[in-house]
């Protein structure tokens, strides 16, 4: 069963109109993209800064109204950009656990908000539910009366996860949930997330720049570059057998114990300019296989063998 179905979703941020003349074309942060996520699946989303992963995430949870396209969650389509309607279906865990908690509210007040405003739950019932959730994520009840600054990053992130669970969503978008944490704490949180998923039957969208972490937690992985999906495929094979040269570049760049240090890309290349996007494939300027067609025609996402799709005119042979 499909938990999340995204059709032609895109976001263009308009740019200010100059005093004279027409408005310049907007910045296309997310170009039209379609994908779906099965129930109980974890879809990893990887990409570098500026690839549109945060814009995509904000649209999925309703914090940002899409320019075009449809989002269906469990067969329902919540209104355009209404977080309250999205909230019961899909929740968000933020990157920085400390800035996602209001410094002037106790943890109890934070935890109560979704129960009170999304479900209009009476006070006594709320207390029971919070106790239940805290037990699930193994947090002590004495934390409820404390303020956010009293917690370490790992504890604060657990509280962030608990808050997301309080809304009882089907899907949780995890936006770099462990990148602000220390490595020894990172593993605790990743294991907790895996455990919650099986126990509560959740579906995850796991956004990260760390390929190793994404590979460790995901069933499928979607690679974004410059606002577009360049490749999507099974987590266990996409980095080992990439079809898109960008996926290969990412996989080769990740520091791996036992691999000699070589820069996979010697040129001092930079990302394309979003204010002046190049025609054709956005990766052409950095791609060793680029030809003339890459600089004129934008490649479509197409099937490349089993469970793998890539948007490339000259895919790498498996």
């Amino acid at each position: 069963m499909v938990a999340l179905d995204v059709e032609n979703l895109s976001k263009t941020f308009p740019r200010a109109r100059p005093l004279f003349g027409a408005a310049p074309p907007g910045v296309r942060a997310v170009r039209p993209m379609s994908f779906d996520v099965e129930h109980g699946e974890t879809l990893g989303i990887v990409g570098e800064s500026g690839c549109g992963k945060s814009t995509l995430a904000r649209m999925l949870v309703g914090l940002l109204a899409p320019s075009e396209g449809e989002i269906q969650i469990d067969g329902q389509s919540p209104g355009k950009g209404d977080p309250a309607e999205f909230g019961k279906l899909i929740q968000y865990v933020f990157q920085d656990p400390n800035s996602s908690l209001n410094p002037r509210k106790t943890i109890k007040q934070v935890m109560e908000a979704p129960l009170k405003h999304l479900y209009q739950m009476p006070s006594a019932q709320r207390d029971d539910r919070i106790r239940e959730i805290f037990a699930t994520v193994s947090l002590r009840e004495s934390f409820l009366e404390r303020y956010p600054h009293e917690f370490s990053g790992g504890q604060a992130q657990r509280i962030g996860i608990a808050r997301a669970l309080a809304a009882d969503p089907r899907i949780i978008v995890l936006d770099e949930p462990v990148s602000a944490l220390d490595v020894s704490v990172q593993a605790q949180v990743l294991n907790l997330l895996a455990d919650l998923k099986t126990r509560l039957g959740l579906t995850y969208l796991f956004i990260s720049h760390d390929l190793a972490v994404v590979e460790a937690v995901s069933d499928r992985v979607m690679v974004l570059y410059f606002g577009s999906v360049v490749e999507i495929g099974r987590a266990d094979s996409i980095f080992a057998h990439p079809r898109h040269p960008y996926t290969k570049l990412l996989a080769d760049s990740a520091p791996v114990v036992g691999r000699p240090l070589t820069a996979p890309e010697q040129k001092g290349t930079e990302l394309p300019d979003p204010l002046d996007p190049p025609p054709g494939c956005a990766f052409a300027g950095r791609c060793p296989k680029a030809t003339d067609i890459c600089r004129t025609d934008e490649p479509e996402l197409r099937d490349m063998g089993e469970d793998q799709r890539a948007a490339c005119h000259h895919p790498i042979d498996p």
Binding site: S184, Q186, A187, L190, N191, L211, V213, E215, A240, V256
Partner: peptide, 24 residues
Amino acid sequence: KRLIACVPELGQGKRVLAAIPGLP
């Protein structure tokens, strides 16, 4: 040993990580 074990490494596939309990 445990710090190395709890860092996922590319190419090892989906798995449970050996976390270190507690805090520094």
